[in-house]
Each structure stands twice: as C-alpha cells, then as structure tokens.
Design a protein around this nucleic acid. Sequence first.
DNA 1: CTCCAGGTTCCGG
DNA 2: CCGGAACATGGA
Length: 285
Amino acid sequence: MSRALAEIAAPEFDLALTLGCGQVFHWRQHGAGWLGMIGDAPCYAEQRGTTLLVPHGIEKIAAHYFALDHPLEEMRATFPDDPAMNAAADACSGLRLVRQPHWECLATFITSAQKAVPHIAQISHTLRERYGRPAAWNDERLFEYPEPAALAALEEKDLRACALGYRAKNLLRTARMIAGGEVSLEAIARLGDGEAALELQRLAGVGPKVAACALLFGFGRLAAFPIDVWIERILRTIYFAKRRRVTTQRLREFSARHFGAFGGYAQQYLFHHARTTMPRGNKSK
DNA sequence: CTCCAGGTTCCGG
DNA sequence: CCGGAACATGGA
C-alpha cells in the first residue's frame, strides 16, 4: 500500500463536521486527518483548506463518497427561511451527506435504535473487527463492514456479544433476508422514494425512521427526512409550539412538505445543531 | 439509582 | 390511526 496522497478540490467542505455529525460511525481521527473505509477501499483523508488529501488512486471514489458534487448553496436556498433553520445551516456550513454503501448504512442504522451516537460507533467497530474483511492503510488495520452473508451465518448470541442487545435479532433476521434474496437492495435502489421506503420496512428492525436514514445516507434520496427524538423535539417546539397533541403521523406529513427536495440536508443540519448546542436538550423555548 | 439514547413491534381502545 | 409497554446496554 502506497503512502502517496493525492489532492482533490473540496470547496465548501468541512471534513471533521461531515464525519463527526452522526451520519456515519466508523471513521476515527488519525494524525492530522481521518481513517476509515469507503466500501472496500481503505482511506486516509486530511483536509487542508479547500483541498482534500486522499490515497492516490481513489480520488474519484473519495470525491463521490464525500459528495463533493452536492451544490450546498443551491440546496440551502431551498430550505425554509426561519431563525431555527438559518441558525442550523450557518452552524453546519461545509457539512455534506456522504454516499454510504447500501448495506453498511442500513445495517448500521438498524443497530442505532435507542442508542447514543458513541454506542453506535462502538457496535460498528466491534462488528467490523470480528466479522469484516481485514484491510490496511500503511500500518493501520481497518475492516470492511461485514457482508449480509457473513452476519447471516451467525447466531443471535454472537451478535448480542457485540452489545447489540435486542437489536441482535433484527440485524440477524434482516441479514438473512438480504443474503437469501428475499429482499434486494439493488432493486430498492431503482424504486421511487415512497416505494423504496415501504420495501425497506419489510425488513426486521426497519420502521419509518431507519428506512429514512437508509434512503438518505445510503441511497442518496436527499428528500428523505428521518424523524428521531431530536428532530421530533425540534419540530414540536419550533414548528408546533403551543399545539397540544400533534401525532407523529402529522409531523411526517408536515416535514415532507415543509422542508422540500433537500429536506434530508435540512434535517441533518437541524439534528447536528441541536445536538451540539443543547446537549441532553429538553428545555423548550 | 434514575434517566435517556438517531425506534420498532405488538397490543388494546 | 393512536397511545403504551417491552425490549438491552452503557454513560451521565
């Protein structure tokens, strides 16, 4: 493995913000940059101003993964123009939604249910180390995310030993459905957003929220709007202040309409901003 | 010790 | 369709 790094242009990009905002969980800081896998490609990434250094030979792969082609300014212009949204967008300048591999993204979010971000990262690392194909960048060991077939061959207790808790059964069942061909992620990639969401929800441990995360972070559906506890809190306090008893169904309809074609970006900005400005947030306003 | 975390599923109104 | 409860684990 060569040590040589190549430069790629990365305007309007914040690598640390992008990797640390809770959309992807396996990258770790290393020296002046970050170390992780882009599918089966080991990658060290380091930002220097508007330039991104990545291993020679995977420039195209890295540029695609980090979504350097997303027109951030144009997308932001479509967001609703209100104080909360603007504050979040200001705080998240350069945050891009990376293009994660389908399975890795879906599986990770199945394991994310009712878990804090650091816990999700820990689970991801354990699964990779124990069941993923080993790789390396220089002398640093890395691991691919385990294929569906690799997880499908395990027993539930093996996954519980990775601190998955009750999510073990869901990940195992879903891995078996995918490995057995009962559900095809490639086929889902060709469906429209609505149909794709329904198809994903046939899988164990996949409801509206996890399906939306998979669509947004894995299938490039930038209108997908995952509603988790943070976003629900924001929607209720900012957009439904003083309304009593708003159903989650109502929240879904509202956000799909209100945040538009790039709602997923708006969602991630609101999510990250809330998480960093009001940790353990509960105080409404 | 209690509370909560990027939820889903199942079960009665 | 809606509200509750169960489901594991670890950190604050």
